[in-house]
């Protein structure tokens, strides 16, 4: 007993140390962005890796709050995130459940057809024609529907459902429940960790959507937040060193860039703590027995 508890303690202390170090390393880039969003650029130049500002400066945030585009962007992003996630989870559940039945006839053909879409895509122009002919051009639907169901996550969801012991389902079948009832009463409650995962995945995907908005909308008041952020922020990796660059207001100051990143990612970061309880071991006991 004594030996085990020593090994246990050793395990724990190693585990805590390693994870803590890794977590701190992971905190660094975020802290970096956050710190320099409240530090003056001059100070950044002198100490480019110093994470504690001498003097807090919220000027950048003040400027951001006055940018009208960012607020319409926020509204659009929240709409496409909420609607997109709801649609995605619904479609994924009703599609993944039948596909999780290994003996369902035609299942393999459908799975192959779905897998195929991970590799071959028509590209910009045919997709644009499609959106226009479905009358989705210049609507927020054009940012919700394409991508509402993706092969990758669907296959993962299917494999999660397939892992649920079939004995649970069978007992319900004997009671005469049909598949719709089984999905609602047994599969969904048992899939909470998986559903929570895909809520996070799809919410983040939708939150970060920007490319579809370029192609499928022509009005700036339909732009999602990330499209605006990209246009304001991404110039080191990419943009406009136009001929007149110094004169362009398009080139945003370093501090403002950092502030915009914080301003645009903070809300989506908050989704994770809310979903966390579904990842806790043991939370499933109740639903299995109930």
């Amino acid at each position: 007993m004594g030996i085990r508890s020593f090994k246990d303690k050793l395990f724990d202390s190693l585990n805590y140390t390693v994870i803590t170090i890794f977590a701190l390393v992971c905190l660094f880039p975020f802290l970096y962005v956050a710190a320099f969003s409240v530090t003056s650029y001059t100070e950044y130049l002198q100490h480019p890796l110093k994470l504690i500002p001498y003097k807090l400066e919220f000027g950048a945030y003040k400027q951001i709050f006055e940018m009208p585009v960012l607020w319409t962007g926020y509204r659009n992003t929240i709409i496409i995130t909420v609607a997109g996630v709801a649609l995605n989870i619904f479609l994924m559940l009703i599609t993944a459940y039948p596909l999780s039945k290994p003996d369902l006839k035609g299942r393999n053909v459908i799975l192959l057809m779905i897998t195929f879409t991970m590799f071959f895509n028509g590209g910009l122009i045919p997709n644009f024609y499609l959106i226009r002919s479905l009358d989705l051009y210049n609507t927020l639907w054009s940012l919700i529907l394409p991508g509402a169901l993706g092969a990758y996550n669907l296959i993962l969801m299917k494999s999660f459902i397939q892992n649920i012991p079939s004995s649970l389902e069978e007992s319900a079948q004997i009671d005469g429940a049909n598949e719709v009832t089984i999905l609602a009463r047994i599969i969904i409650p048992l899939s909470k960790p998986a559903i929570a995962t895909f809520v996070i995945f799809h919410a983040v995907t939708q939150w970060n959507t920007f490319f579809n908005a370029i192609i499928y909308t022509s009005k700036r008041d339909l732009w999602p937040l990330m499209l605006i952020v990209r246009d304001l922020v991404v110039d080191g990796g990419g943009v406009a060193r136009d001929v007149m660059d110094a004169a362009n207001s398009g080139v945003t100051e370093f501090t403002i860039k950092m502030a915009i990143i914080i301003f645009s990612t903070l809300p989506i970061l908050l989704i994770f703590p809310f979903m966390q309880k579904y990842f806790m071991k043991g939370m499933l006991i109740g639903s299995i027995k109930g």
Binding site: P98, L104, N121, G122, P126, L154
Partner: peptide, 22 residues
């Protein structure tokens, strides 16, 4: 089960297979 599959399959046909001629 088959009815449940209809929306998903239609979705892939419309949004993935229709533009695939690209």
């Amino acid at each position: 089960l088959y009815i449940m599959l209809i929306p998903g399959v239609l979705y892939f046909l419309i949004f993935n297979y229709v533009p695939m001629y690209g």
